[in-house]
């Protein structure tokens, strides 16, 4: 562009923005198709007799799949497990994350390297962290925990048999603590030094400082962490798949794993579709509340 040329007349410029809006069409279409087509198919399957093992038995089934699913003792437990996993992990990661953030807000030797170490678990793929914990830490024979318990005279415990859900909570919390920590640390560090100084001058102790200065400042970070963790943790799957496989019984089966059981173990597409709708419904209920509180924290 060597010369300044008025290429466009006034009304052409005015129509330009509409042309630009077209650039948003591909992304919107893809996301629309992605969220609507499978959902409609799921809805359709949920009223059909459809088992991959019995290809001849097809047709309309009315509420059959719904009745079947509602009578499945696994369903209630799976919903409960889904919510319990999410709530516990949120509490643990945000609680410990806040403490860690305050610790790493202090100046100490080698802080940068220590922070990198704390962050590392977040970048580890879920199948690696789950197997690492299952086999090398929690294993009742060869695990490190078993070694530690033996060396103080205790009898090692088979954690995935005794407390499968708790074991999974520990593993997933370990993976997500770094994210909560890093978000909260960023928020703590953006807190104005002068405000802290002023509070200190007014004689605020450590607890009062946290209660009245730091915690209110963390609202945004907590909202954002809750939102992202909910997105990723409602569908915990790999960690269950490689450790407890949902057992013993249904003790550590969440909705994701229940649907997986229907599809790839029983080949029951109709049943899986209904369970899928339950999962979507649950997610939307949570999304409705989360989105509302999160949207307030955005400057979009």
């Amino acid at each position: 562009m060597t010369q300044h040329q008025p290429v466009l007349s006034g009304d052409q410029i005015a129509t330009r923005p509409r042309g630009r809006l077209l650039l948003n069409v591909p992304a919107i279409s893809v996301l629309f198709l992605w969220s609507i087509v499978p959902l409609c198919m799921t809805l359709w399957f949920s009223f059909r007799r459809y088992n991959l093992m019995e290809p001849t038995r097809t047709g309309f089934d009315g509420w059959g799949n719904y009745r079947y699913l509602l009578s499945d003792p696994g369903l209630g437990l799976a919903i409960w497990n889904t919510i319990f996993l999410l709530a516990s992990i949120l509490l643990i990661t945000i609680g410990l994350g806040t403490l860690l953030a305050i610790l790493f807000d202090q100046d100490f030797f080698g802080r940068g390297i220590a922070r990198v170490l704390v962050l590392s678990p977040f970048f580890v793929m879920p199948t690696v962290s789950a197997l690492l914990w299952k086999n090398m830490i929690l294993h009742p024979e060869n695990g490190l925990l078993a070694f530690l318990m033996r060396s103080v005279g205790l009898k090692p415990v088979d954690w995935f048999a005794v407390a499968p859900l708790t074991s999974i909570i520990v593993i997933v919390s370990w993976q997500w603590l770094p994210f909560a920590f890093l978000t909260l640390l960023t928020a703590v560090q953006s807190l104005d030094e002068e405000r802290k100084e002023a509070a200190r001058m007014d004689g605020a102790g450590a607890i009062a400082m946290f209660r009245y200065i730091i915690w209110p400042h963390l609202g945004r970070a907590v909202a954002a962490t809750t939102m992202i963790e909910t997105i990723f943790l409602l569908g915990i799957f790999a960690e269950i798949y490689v450790t407890s496989a949902g057992g013993p019984g249904f003790a550590s089966t969440n909705l994701s794993f229940l649907i997986y059981r229907y599809v790839l173990m029983e080949y029951d597409i109709g049943g899986a579709a209904v369970a899928g709708l339950v999962a979507v419904l649950l997610a939307n209920l949570l999304a409705f509340f989360l989105m509302r509180s999160f949207a307030r924290n955005l400057d979009a």
Binding site: I259, A275, G276
Partner: peptide, 15 residues
Amino acid sequence: MLSTKMMPSVGVLVP
């Protein structure tokens, strides 16, 4: 757009 991410993957696994 963000809310489409809230849709659990399992909900669309079958289709």
